[in-house]
């Protein structure tokens, strides 16, 4: 996690946005005690259901608009990849679209 793509202001800003979106859509899941890092896995670590990932990316879609195409990204992933998705992978995808 030391490559330029995972550091720098853009990456940090997106990580903050994703973390905020998580709290917005999942306020009932008591995330407060769970530190969210790039290595955090949505399903395994945060106990999200796959349907929550849809809700999360819909929320992020509202924030980033057409600049980030989440459905197209999901379409490029296998279901097993989606189940194992980390916060860092999502942040990296968004940061790449914004560049």
């Amino acid at each position: 996690m030391t490559s330029p793509a995972t550091t720098g202001p853009a990456y940090a800003a997106v990580l903050a946005e994703v973390t905020d979106a998580l709290h917005t859509v999942l306020d009932d899941l008591e995330l407060d005690d769970t530190p969210i890092t790039p290595d955090t896995r949505f399903v395994e670590d945060l106990d999200l259901e796959s349907i929550d990932l849809v809700t999360l990316t819909a929320e992020l879609g509202g924030r980033y608009g057409d600049r980030v195409d989440f459905p197209a990204w999901f379409a490029s992933l296998e279901l097993s990849d989606i189940i194992g998705l980390t916060v860092g992978q999502l942040v990296q995808y968004i940061a790449g679209c914004l560049r």
């Binding site: 796959s50 349907i51 990932l53 849809v54 459905p71 197209a72 999901f74 379409a75 992933l77 989606i82």
Partner: peptide, 25 residues
């Protein structure tokens, strides 16, 4: 089952082909 069975599989391709796609739980 729920709408993710479509959201993560065929739905993006149908939209990319120009169709308006509606999914619901």
């Amino acid at each position: 089952d729920n709408l993710t069975s479509y959201y993560f599989t065929i739905a993006p391709a149908l939209a990319a082909a120009g169709h308006d796609v509606v999914m619901y739980d």
